[in-house]
């Protein structure tokens, strides 16, 4: 317990994050290269979708990350709210833009895939709609955080919002799913997933790891900036920046 609390202080966490970052950046780059090589060059083309399916090597990991990061963000926000540890709230704030970016990336790649496959950039499918609402939740979190000047109030207010959002995510997901099954339009069903070749799974798994490494690296870089900004008046910051 104490070992973990040891790094709960921004002063101690700052150099640790700095040491971890290069490793994460390098592994993110290497894994992304390997994953893209498998996905774009080695994996066989799909029987039904041809080459167009290859966007899933970016699309699926991005969607997973966007959902997962929201939960991690809500977790850190909740820890910050309960234990009053500043670093946890800073971590939540650092994760939000990355999560929003992944949600947007997932929507954009989905649109790029949908145009040749469905003939439309956008259909009101349950997954697309709930991903869009997830993006809105991220934007609300960021908007609330950046509108409150007092950092302590900003931390706590946005933590409440993140927790309310986390409780609502499953409700929103199932309501939207039900809504779109009732409105069965002309769109193609996404739910039946064809069995994938093993190389495709490998490519996707490696891309997921690459996105993980990237997300952690970027969050650490951002949290370092936030620490410097918030602790600017502390004595140790002077030595840390030199």
């Amino acid at each position: 317990m104490n070992r973990w609390l040891h790094f709960a202080s921004p002063q101690r966490f700052y150099p640790l994050a700095g040491r971890l970052m290069p490793w994460l950046v390098v592994s993110a780059a290497l894994l992304a290269l390997a994953g893209l090589a498998i996905g774009l060059l080695i994996a066989p083309s799909d029987a039904q979708q041809g080459e167009g399916y290859r966007i899933i090597f970016v699309h699926v990991p991005a969607s997973w990350m966007s959902m997962f990061i929201y939960l991690v963000m809500a977790f850190w926000a909740g820890v910050g709210l309960v234990l009053n540890t500043r670093l946890s709230s800073m971590m939540a704030q650092a994760l939000a833009p990355t999560g929003a970016m992944f949600a947007l990336l997932s929507l954009l790649t989905g649109a790029l895939w949908g145009k040749p496959m469905w003939g439309a950039w956008w259909v009101w499918d349950a997954r697309l709609t709930s991903e869009l609402i997830l993006l809105f939740l991220y934007l609300g979190f960021i908007a609330l955080y950046s509108s409150i000047e007092d950092p302590s109030r900003a931390d706590r207010a946005s933590a409440v919002l993140a927790l309310v959002g986390a409780v609502n995510v499953p409700i929103i997901y199932f309501s939207v799913k039900w809504w779109s099954t009732l409105h069965q339009g002309a769109s193609v069903s996404l739910t039946r997933s064809p069995s994938m070749a093993v190389t495709m799974l490998w490519g996707m798994g490696i891309m997921v790891l690459a996105f993980w490494a990237y997300a952690i690296a970027v969050a650490l870089a951002r949290v370092r900036c936030i620490i410097l900004e918030r602790e600017a008046r502390a004595e140790w910051v002077k030595y840390a920046v030199e």
Partner: peptide
């Protein structure tokens, strides 16, 4: 959450509208 903030009018819309989705789905449904 937005009490007393300068742009609270717009902000409350951005925060609350995504949370209103299930109500709209079941109500209008």
């Amino acid at each position: 959450l937005t009490l007393g903030l300068r742009n609270s009018g717009v902000l409350v819309t951005v925060l609350v509208l995504p949370l209103y989705v299930p109500v709209l789905v079941f109500g209008a449904g």
